[in-house]
Simulated assay, not measured.
Amino acid sequence: MSKTVDKAQCVIAVDIGGTRLRAASVTEYGEIRHLKQRKTLPRRYVQAIISDINGLIEEQERYSHERGFTVRGIGIISPGYPDVDGRVSITPNIPCLTNVPIKNYLKKDPAVPVLFENDGNAGAYGEYIFGQKKKVRHLVVLTLGTGLGSGVVADGKIARGTEGVSGELGHVTLNPDGPQCLCGKSGCLESYFSGFALVQSAKTLLKDSRHLVGYKNNIEAITPETIAEKARGGDRI
């Protein structure tokens, strides 16, 4: 008697970041396949970002189906704490998405479920399941991107707290007189440790410097990538 072999399964993962969108097909073993990305940029229109999200999902669906995978769900992560419809009340790094019910605008198979989660929480739980599960029951993960996110796993579960924001470290005040954060407050941890903070510090140092020549005399051309490139080339600033 022949044994029935289950069809390979995967989920589509979408990461909505302050600088770029990423999407990939992820197998049940945690293998990341067909990673693609598009720019987000805070000043873009919401319609353009939604269109890119749909485009990335459609591309991943096509990739998965062509390779015999059954798509069992779509997971979408973002800064802030999205509700079941993907609506986030405060998104300082992507202000155009504030209070937008992303789920309502997705073009997908209605039979495929969609789950929204905070990016820091997703990173922490992913590390727990595919990285440290056999070693620890509690862990903290920091996610460094345009902003600074974090997630806490306690006793094998995401720690959410009574208001759902437990473990959010990015907007803890480090110095009340510190630099202004994108959230509007001053001295948040994110205003010191993030891609945004790195660029702001570089702009301050280079404002009156001959080193700006290396950035084509355009201070707005400074990005975390160009800073890293200059550092690898020996630029001490």
Rank of each mutant, 00 (worst) to 15 (best):
I12W: 12
E127R: 06
I129Q: 10
L169I: 15
T70M: 11
I222S: 10
F196M: 00
R38Q: 14
V46L: 04
Q9T: 12
G80R: 14
A124V: 13
R72V: 14
I219F: 05
P113S: 09
L174N: 02
Q60T: 10
V11E: 05
I77Q: 02
Y125P: 00
Y63M: 00
L97D: 02
Q37W: 08
L97C: 08
A13N: 02
G167N: 11
D83A: 04
T143W: 08
V46Y: 03
G73S: 14
G18T: 05
T146D: 10
D155C: 13
T70W: 11
R20E: 12
A122V: 08
E190Q: 14
G233Y: 00
A13E: 01
Y125S: 06
K7C: 07
V136N: 12
G18N: 07
I57N: 10
D155E: 15
I49R: 13
R44C: 13
I50V: 15
T223V: 03
G184A: 09
V88Q: 10
I57Y: 07
G178L: 07
Y192R: 02
K230R: 15
L56D: 05
T226C: 02
H211V: 04
S194W: 09
K207I: 00
R210T: 10
G234W: 01
T40N: 06
T98H: 07
I90C: 05
G233R: 06
L174D: 00
E220G: 06
G147F: 10
V100K: 11
G161H: 10
G167C: 13
G234F: 02
S89Y: 00
C10S: 14
K230E: 13
Y192S: 02
G234V: 09
Q200C: 03
N104M: 03
F116V: 07
D15G: 06
T19V: 09
P176R: 10
N99Q: 14
L148W: 09
L144Q: 09
S150N: 12
I53W: 08
I53H: 13
S51E: 08
I94Y: 03
P92L: 04
G151D: 07
G149Q: 11
S201V: 01
S64M: 05
H138N: 15
Y128E: 04
A197T: 08
A111S: 15
K7L: 13
D6M: 04
A23E: 03
Q60K: 10
R43Y: 15
K3E: 12
C183W: 06
C181R: 04
S89I: 12
Y215V: 01
A221V: 01
V26A: 06
Q180M: 15
R236P: 01
R137A: 11
V141R: 12
K36T: 15
G178P: 03
I102T: 11
R22N: 09
R160W: 00
R236I: 11
L97T: 08
G149R: 13
F130E: 00
S78K: 04
E220V: 01
L148I: 04
G178A: 01
Y128V: 06
T98Q: 14
K103Q: 12
L41H: 14
T70Q: 13
K7S: 11
E117C: 06
L115K: 14
N218I: 00
G131F: 06
T226M: 01
G145D: 06
Y105H: 15
V165G: 05
A122H: 03
K230L: 09
L206R: 12
A228E: 08
K7Y: 03
K157W: 03
K133P: 00
G86F: 04
V165Q: 12
E168V: 12
